[in-house]
Computed example of a mutant assay.
Amino acid sequence: MNMSYEQMVELASSGLVAAGIGEKAAFETAQFLSLAELDGLASHGLARVSQYAGHAKNGRIELAPKIKVRPFKTSAALVDACDGLAFPALRFATDLSVNLASKTGVGLVAVTNSHHFGVAGHYAEAAARAGYISLLFGNTPAAMPMVGGSKAMFGTNPLAAAFPVQGHEPLVIDMSLSAVARGKLLVAAKKGESIPEGWALTADGKPTTDPQEGLKGLMVPLGGDKGALLALIVELLVVGLSGSRFSYEADSFFDAKGNRPRIGQLLLTIDPGLSGGNVFAGRMRDFLKELSADSGTRIPGERRFKQRASGFKGGVNVSEVVVGEIQTGIRQSWSNS
């Protein structure tokens, strides 16, 4: 089903409000989910509306939280998402980190008592568009084992980095530390499709092409042991600085019932003027010129921005199964009111 950005925001927002989520949080969340659809990242798009609605109905999130902030020294702060949806808190934390970096050169903001935060690159991109280097790390409910282990200890633990490019779109690197984002299994499960072998394992550690079994089991780390160790670094940084829950303490996002995840995120925003004047901009320009001279090279973020521009003009195709789920939730809300 082809939908414009505005139509997606309206549908997603209505679906979240129907589940009892406050209008402001629902609208801001819908904006990010719709942006993910424009970027071609359906695993972090409208497919999440029914998931979040299930969490709302089962008390896994606070419906209308008031974000709290605790400053720490001159260039760091802790943002408490207060068990709400993560998007409003991450938007606030990104703005705060940029503000701190503009004053002190560096802005470090940890987010605690948080939830699933969508596409990590969206926040880093926003800081880069303001002229800053941005790094973002987050932990997620346990889905991957430690090296040599068979028990889920830490999540797919996404990370993103964005670098401003004078006169051009920023360079954005965005990845989870599993072989693929776990949300891709969610999309495949909703469509009744299989997944490639090598994406996930069953609960007893066997390779599977069934996304439902993969969601119940383990994700395969990106690059084997190295991916698992990178996920561990993210886990310890995020939890240690935010005081949030470890991944193994948070129940799966893919279950409607469970505890309040209370996971965390960490943003590091840096003023690139350290080397003086326009040195950073010049070095970036030289690097990208050399990189582009290599035929076939793709600049990180480039494809996403092209898809976004195309989506803003002509809309994007959203799964009819996903749209139907959201509409059913809205109708049920009406009949119960």
Rank of each mutant, 00 (worst) to 15 (best):
D39M: 13
G276A: 14
A30R: 02
S43P: 08
F32G: 11
G105T: 01
G20F: 05
S244V: 06
F87Q: 02
S194N: 12
S319N: 04
S244D: 02
K216S: 14
T104P: 05
V9M: 04
L230I: 01
R285A: 12
F154A: 04
L85V: 11
L229Q: 11
G314N: 07
Y52R: 01
I133F: 03
L230W: 00
I21F: 13
G258V: 07
V79Q: 01
G301L: 02
Q51M: 15
G223I: 06
A160L: 11
S335N: 10
A181E: 10
A120R: 00
T202A: 13
S75V: 10
D39N: 13
M219L: 09
M3V: 08
E302A: 15
L185E: 03
G155R: 07
Q212I: 06
M144E: 10
A110C: 09
E302P: 13
A231G: 12
A18T: 12
G148Y: 08
T74A: 15
G273R: 04
A130D: 05
F27Q: 14
L63G: 00
T74L: 15
M8P: 01
G296A: 05
T328Q: 07
V79R: 04
I21N: 09
F312P: 05
G45S: 05
I173A: 04
F32V: 14
G264K: 02
K68T: 12
G54P: 03
K313A: 15
D174Q: 08
A293G: 15
P261L: 06
G314Y: 05
S242Q: 02
K216G: 14
G22Q: 04
L78Q: 01
K151F: 07
A42R: 00
L16I: 09
V165G: 09
S335K: 08
F32N: 12
W199A: 02
A110K: 01
A161M: 14
W334Y: 13
E235A: 04
A47S: 10
P88L: 06
M146T: 09
F32R: 13
A281Q: 07
F246Y: 03
S310N: 12
V234W: 04
M219G: 03
A86I: 04
G223N: 05
I326E: 02
V17I: 07
D294M: 14
Y123I: 04
M175E: 04
I173W: 07
R308V: 11
M3R: 06
V316E: 01
L33I: 07
A64R: 11
L108F: 13
R60G: 03
A56S: 15
T202Y: 12
G192T: 01
K73T: 14
T269K: 03
T94W: 01
V165C: 14
M1S: 09
S13M: 13
N336H: 15
W334N: 10
F92I: 07
G167K: 09
V187E: 05
A77H: 12
I67H: 11
S14C: 13
A120E: 00
A181N: 10
G301W: 00
A203I: 13
Y132Q: 05
F287V: 13
S4H: 12
A228C: 11
M284P: 05
I61P: 09
F305K: 11
R70F: 14
F92Q: 02
F137M: 12
R91L: 11
A127P: 01
T328F: 05
A18P: 10
G59R: 00
F154V: 03
G15H: 04
A161I: 15
